[in-house]
């Protein structure tokens, strides 16, 4: 549509790809009521407006959206959907749009993190020996606190009860936050373990709309469980 009077409305690929919410409303059912736009804290910022994005998808104007920064401004929080009277899957629409962006055009650090993770097992690209060193160092410090004497982190412990993964930022700049769970585990007498490799707890394929990478990273969790014969998983994020 737009100002081009000759062209027929294109079929949107987003509409086809984005999964439906439980009520199974196709996106076409949109009322244009504005609930999503009224509820979104980002509406009006840099032209962001969920209703507009839905409408453009319905008009088959995918390319215009894929080439813009709009899909990346959204935090995918789902507040829009929460009140949507028609059950439109706006979050999945955004993620589908993100997935349609050329990988080299994904803004910021997301794609870099995904690639490093695929390559090295964590978003930081940290080698295994450095990781082990940091973990053991922090654990040793914790063992000096009263009540936690003798604490060590079991790495790659076969037959452990619980698999624990780590958010890369705790290993990187926020080491002090590593100990909270360890303290709880220690007091609870939890039999946990951390893998020495592929320990990354986040999965940025979720953000970049990249199902392939996301599946690989999830697959590593399954591998840990199989390889180390662990009984239970503590969901990473």
């Amino acid at each position: 549509m737009g100002t081009d009077t000759e062209t027929k409305r294109k079929q949107s690929a987003v509409k086809e790809k984005a999964p439906l919410r439980p009520v199974e409303s196709p996106m076409d059912i949109c009322l244009g009521c504005g609930t999503c736009s009224a509820g979104c804290a980002m509406t009006g910022v840099d032209g962001f407006d969920p209703r507009k994005i839905v409408r453009k998808v319905l008009m088959g104007r995918d390319a215009e959206l894929v080439g813009s920064k709009l899909p990346w401004i959204c935090t995918m929080c789902g507040k829009c959907e929460h009140a949507c009277p028609m059950g439109i899957n706006i979050v999945n629409m955004i993620r589908t749009l993100r997935g349609m962006v050329d990988r080299d055009k994904v803004p910021g650090m997301i794609q870099k993190g995904v690639e490093l993770c695929l390559e090295t097992g964590n978003n930081l690209g940290l080698p295994a020996e450095d990781f082990t060193f940091i973990i053991e160092d922090v654990a040793a410090e914790m063992a000096e606190e009263p009540g936690f004497e003798g604490f060590t982190v079991p790495i790659d412990k076969k037959g452990a009860n619980l698999l624990h993964t780590l958010h890369n930022k705790l290993v990187n700049t926020q080491n002090e936050d590593l100990v909270h769970w360890w303290k709880i585990f220690h007091m609870a007498g939890e039999d946990f373990t951390i893998p020495s490799e592929n320990w990354e707890g986040v999965n940025w394929g979720l953000f970049s709309g990249d199902d392939e990478s996301m599946k690989i990273v999830v697959g590593r969790i399954v591998e840990h469980m199989d390889r180390l014969e662990i009984k239970n998983l503590m969901y990473p994020e």
Partner: peptide
């Protein structure tokens, strides 16, 4: 509840003003 503005990988994108506004 309101989103804090940091979801969906927002901390990793270059659109930091928007994130703070959010």
């Amino acid at each position: 509840d309101f989103c804090c503005g940091g979801g969906g990988g927002a901390l990793l994108t270059p659109y930091q003003d928007a994130r703070v506004h959010y």
